[in-house]
């Protein structure tokens, strides 16, 4: 079973992402929810994790800082990170991809968008 960490300070956003995961066939994955980057980082370190879906704009630790921590961690550097944000545009997307994000998606997230972003992940 895959283990997926969702980091977003909004319960609504986490609910939407969960629904999308369910629709694209990841409903049986173990989903761990985190309200900010620091909590997500701890969750990702706590057990082998297959995917991290993170918002950008969060209190305590934002998504960009989380991405930097993940990519700098020898234990987590291979963890695929997808950023799902309302503050994304081509310039920001370029920055985040350079930092190691697998994909950058704009809210509102929809199942086809997530399915496309996770195509390689879903094939495994």
């Amino acid at each position: 079973m895959k283990r997926i960490v969702i980091a977003d300070d909004s319960a609504t956003a986490r609910m939407f992402i969960r629904r999308c995961l369910d629709i694209i066939g990841l409903g049986d994955a173990e989903i761990v929810e985190a309200e900010h980057g620091k909590e997500a980082l701890a969750a990702a370190k706590a057990a082998p994790t297959d995917l991290l879906l993170s918002d950008l704009n969060m209190p305590v630790m934002d998504g960009e800082t989380l991405l930097k921590w993940v990519k700098a961690s020898p234990k987590l550097s291979d963890l695929p990170v997808v950023i799902i944000t309302s503050a994304g545009n081509p310039a920001k997307e370029k920055e985040l991809l350079k930092l190691g994000a697998l994909k950058v998606l704009n809210k509102p997230v929809a199942p086809p968008m997530l399915m496309d972003a996770l195509a390689s992940f879903l094939d495994d």
Binding site: S10, N57, T85, S86, A87, G88, P90, A91, N106, K107
Partner: peptide
């Protein structure tokens, strides 16, 4: 949050954050 992000993405040039 979503609406404001889409608004700014629609409004400003692609090379601006």
């Amino acid at each position: 949050n979503t609406l404001a992000g889409l608004f700014m993405t629609n409004l400003i040039p692609e090379d601006q954050t």
